[in-house]
């Protein structure tokens, strides 16, 4: 698998979405994994759909995302009889644009990315599933993270300092924490000295580790601010030995926000949508070991979602865009904030 690179916003504008989707990470390992069943045998809704193309971002951790979708790929191929292909893009916009142009049937994306897709596609895209924890909660957080050896203890300490966002279409790494800061009377565009987009959660952690930012906004899940967190990019990287949790400190959180939805093109046959939803939701119960193997929390499952569940995120994104247009005091740049 190619290493992820930091992709700047300008690189993933609509005109180059195909590049961001295909060139950056058109994983050869995945594209080689197709259906065992030839398309010529398809009938009914299967023939109408023809194939199942899934879009994934490397939002949390690229290898975790890859493992998750590779397992789903085999599973969904067996059940639907469709050729299943998984395309992993380096950023959210690649998946959104591919979905909007009808190149994908299914994708997982954050709430903010869905909100973007919804604004572009209307009811042609809909959230249909999201994860739910063993304890029944279905949300996650944005955490403001600094290095443990830094002097920063509160968000106030970061006034005038450098901050790494994940992506304009990231809920936990951009949209939600900025909204929460405004709720607390802090304008994120003037509060920090300099901001930049890292391009992904993993990249944000690595950039913080390398001293490119004083702080980053990052996904935190598998817990609450009270209990502590156990999943999310930082914890995934720690389990792989890439970083040490003790080297970092969470100094502020925002959330919970609704878990990232799995979204589907609603102009595909209803039977296809129902079979896919049923198959994905049943996996937690029918093969709990595989569920854990693909990086999902033990005992968690999937719950059906609707557009109404993400309406607040859609409104938040609209407000964010309106704020940016009204007072473009500081626009986040691409890449690192520090040379």
């Amino acid at each position: 698998m190619k290493a992820l690179k930091i992709v700047g916003v300008k690189q993933v504008q609509k005109s180059t979405w195909l590049k961001s989707l295909c060139v950056v990470l058109f994983l050869s390992a995945l594209s080689a994994c197709g259906s065992d069943k030839p398309d010529t045998e398809l009938t009914g809704w299967q023939k109408e759909v023809g194939q199942l193309r899934i879009g994934a971002t490397s939002g949390e951790d690229s290898s975790t995302t890859l493992a998750r979708w590779t397992a789903y790929q085999k599973y969904l191929n067996r059940i639907t009889g469709l050729k299943v292909e998984v395309f992993q893009a380096a950023d959210y916009n690649g998946v959104i644009q591919a979905m909007a142009s009808g190149q994908l049937e299914l994708a997982q994306m954050g709430g903010a990315a869905y909100a973007n897709a919804r604004e572009q596609m209307g009811e042609k895209v809909a959230p249909f599933l999201a994860l739910r924890s063993a304890e029944g909660s279905s949300g996650y957080y944005s955490a403001l993270i600094v290095k443990a050896d830094s002097p920063y203890r509160t968000i106030e300490d970061l006034r005038g300092k450098s901050l790494g966002y994940v992506d304009f279409n990231s809920t936990s790494g951009y949209l939600f924490p900025r909204w929460a800061m405004r709720q607390q009377g802090k304008n994120p565009d003037t509060f920090f000295g300099k901001t930049a987009m890292s391009g992904g959660h993993t990249q944000s952690v690595l950039a913080l580790a390398n001293g490119q930012f004083d702080a980053i906004f990052l996904i935190a899940s598998g817990g609450t601010p009270e209990t502590g967190f156990t999943t999310g990019s930082l914890y995934t990287l720690a389990r792989k030995g890439a970083v040490k949790i003790s080297d970092y400190r969470i100094i502020w959180t925002a959330g919970p926000m609704p878990n990232s939805p799995y979204v589907i093109r609603t102009d595909r046959p209803q039977a296809f949508q129902d079979v896919t939803r049923g198959a994905m939701a049943a996996l937690a119960y029918e093969d709990p070991q595989l569920w854990v193997d693909i990086g999902l929390q033990e005992g968690s499952d999937m719950q059906p979602m609707t557009a109404a569940d993400y309406q607040a995120v859609v409104e938040m994104r609209r407000a964010e865009i309106a704020e940016r247009r009204a007072a473009p005091a500081q626009k986040p740049s691409n890449g690192s904030a520090k040379p």
Partner: peptide
């Protein structure tokens, strides 16, 4: 406890 709590308790952040 729930299996989710067991995972939080026993998986840890350091594989070693």
């Amino acid at each position: 406890i729930t299996a989710g709590a067991r995972q939080r308790l026993c998986r840890g952040d350091d594989p070693k």
